[in-house]
Design a protein around this nucleic acid. Structure first.
Length: 513
RNA sequence: GGCGCUAUCGUCUAGGGGUUAGGACGUGAGAUUCUCAAUCUUAAAACCCGGGUUCGAUUCCCGGUAGCGCUACCA
């Protein structure tokens, strides 16, 4: 392998479930590290577990990464329908482990021939028995190394009898050390690793399936990965992988093991924490830049100890592995919401409107059929209500009244009915209705404001007593945006033919009910 | 059981042998507003326990405890 000095990192998920924030953060840190260093970010699919791997997860995974903006320089070709598949991107493929079996088999042969690995004919039940006895005697449940002693003659005999065998790596008994960028020196006792299995049971001409540690190590080497950044559930696999690197005469890469992200219950993220998958965050209407910003901070901090809001380019510039915290973190929706509110506020109105549109599917025409006027109106609507929600899917509930409401239902609520117990509320609405009936020009915010002043002067009713009844009549609720903002939106909406009643209609309907 | 990792406000974190232990989210109060949201001001809130080293530990070392992880012919 020619070391070009270029940083090469990878994200290597198994397509056995949805991408959740824990894996997404691993991907993000790899990506940030590569982008910052001007290196390369490789996507590899670890699909050797055929029972659990599903192509739909792989497709979803790539979609989620793309949504987050984590583009890869090398990776597998897109899976199409009916087994179709695009060409891999990059020269060190294939990038799906299921397509790389021949490589592992060849390397296993090499190890066997060089005497660095051996065939183990022990059966699973024999090994279980060994383990049971070891445990009972309070010894670590590691392999006895029995088959290492087998003579060539005995091996030959076993093979002739057609006995299946696994392949084990020969390890030397010395303390296992490696360096970790996040944890510093990690050391394990000598007897923690004895002749681990590299390849599962198989026969000479029908080799078994190689284990994860072999394939991951081989792929990392073949793909010229020089920094391995991954979850710390992998940490205790590292000594074995280091042993594999050394047996094959390869250079050991740098490691960085990331602490776990847990749910509020303190347990590592899993299916049970379903809402924390990237695709569900997207469905809830979180912005990718908010998700990125939040998960970047889950285990990493800026060197000034204070800055928390980052655009993606700012993050790329600021990111260093040295600032990663070694302790586990709890995922907190409140803080994610804070970032989402921030990025909704600063997002381009047209973009935000486009994203919000799908949540209003039942109220709006198809986006492609909508006129510019409707698009513009909707963008304004979103601007008005976005500051009141945490994520986009909460928007319809806030803005539904735009499309009208049933006055009877509203008045059935005690909180609304009590506002109209006093005469003043009825007087206010009557006064307003009078003015509307005598008015043939458009109702602008200014016109409306003047009416309120006139009614106040004419009746002496002011403040809450004046504006509350009006708000209920107009919106069916007691809270919402300023009238200055609300009136133009209502009136504009009424001209669009999308079922939005105007101020006049609303008041008449309310009084009539 | 064995081994490993981790331990600062409720949460994410900064810091580090002598600090008023800093920031952010959330929470409480106030200002503003017809109301809500936003905004501003403000308050409460933390160094897991025990021993050592030291003039002095929250910080360094050891032990304990707790949480999590690994302990497979899973990935």
């Amino acid at each position: 392998m020619i070391d070009t000095g270029k940083i090469r990192v990878r994200f290597a998920p198994s397509p056995t479930g949805l991408l959740h924030v824990g894996n997404a953060r691993t991907a993000l840190y790899n990506w940030l590290f590569a982008r910052r260093a001007g290196g390369e970010f490789i996507l590899r699919i670890e699909d050797t577990d055929v029972d659990r791997s599903e192509s739909r997860y792989e497709t979803q995974l790539m979609e989620d990464l793309r949504w987050l903006g984590l583009d890869w320089d090398e990776g597998p070709g897109e899976l199409g329908g009916k087994g179709a598949k695009a060409k891999d991107k990059g020269a060190k493929g294939p990038y799906r482990q299921s397509e790389r079996m021949h490589i592992y088999t060849a390397l296993t042969k090499k190890l066997l021939n060089e005497g660095k690995a051996y065939r183990c004919f022990c059966t699973v039940s024999e090994l279980e028995e060994e383990r049971r006895i070891a445990l009972a005697n309070h010894r670590p449940p590691v392999y006895s190394g029995r088959c290492r002693m087998l003579t060539p003659k005995a091996i030959k005999k076993n093979l002739e009898m057609g006995k299946p065998f696994a392949v084990r790596l020969i390890t030397v008994e010395e303390p296992l050390r490696f360096h970790d960028i996040v944890r510093g020196k990690v050391e394990l006792p000598a007897n923690a690793l004895i002749d681990p299995i590299l390849v599962r049971s198989g026969h000479e001409n029908a080799p078994g399936v190689p284990v994860y540690d072999l394939v991951a190590t081989v792929d990392d080497e073949m793909m010229a990965i020089n920094n391995v950044i991954r979850g710390d559930d992998q940490m205790l696999n590292t000594p074995l992988q280091v042993a594999i690197y050394q047996s094959l005469g390869w250079k050991v890469p740098e490691f960085a093991h990331l602490p776990v992200i847990t749910g509020t219950d303190g347990e590592r993220l899993s299916k049970r924490h379903g809402a924390i998958s990237i695709s569900s965050l997207r469905e809830m209407g979180y912005l990718p830049e908010a998700v990125i910003n939040y998960i970047a901070l889950l285990g990493w901090s800026h060197e000034d100890g204070k800055t928390e809001t980052f655009s993606v380019p700012q993050l790329v510039r600021a990111f260093t592995l040295k600032r990663i915290t070694p302790s586990p973190a709890v995922f907190d929706f409140d803080k994610l919401n804070r970032f989402n509110r921030h990025f909704m506020k600063t997002a381009q109105p047209a973009r935000l409107a486009r994203l919000a549109w799908e949540y209003f599917g039942f109220l709006l025409p198809d986006k492609d059929d909508a006129s510019d006027d409707v698009l513009f109106w909707f963008a304004n609507l979103v601007q008005l209500f976005a500051p009141t929600v945490d994520h986009l899917d909460q928007l319809p509930a806030k803005a539904l009244f735009m499309w009208g409401f049933d006055p009877h239902e509203v008045m059935a609520k005690e909180e609304n009915a009590s506002v109209f117990k006093s005469d003043s509320a009825r007087i206010v609405l009557a006064e307003l209705a009078d003015r509307i009936r005598g008015h043939y020009m458009p109702i602008t915010a200014e016109v409306f404001k003047n009416w309120m002043i006139q009614i106040k002067d004419a009746t002496g009713i002011k403040g809450k007593d004046l504006l509350h009844p009006v708000r209920i009549a107009l919106t069916g609720t007691q809270s919402g945006p300023d009238f200055d903002k609300l009136i133009p939106i209502i009136e504009h909406g009424a001209t669009l033919g999308i079922g939005v009643p105007g101020v006049r209609t609303r008041i008449e309907r309310f009084i009539g009910a």
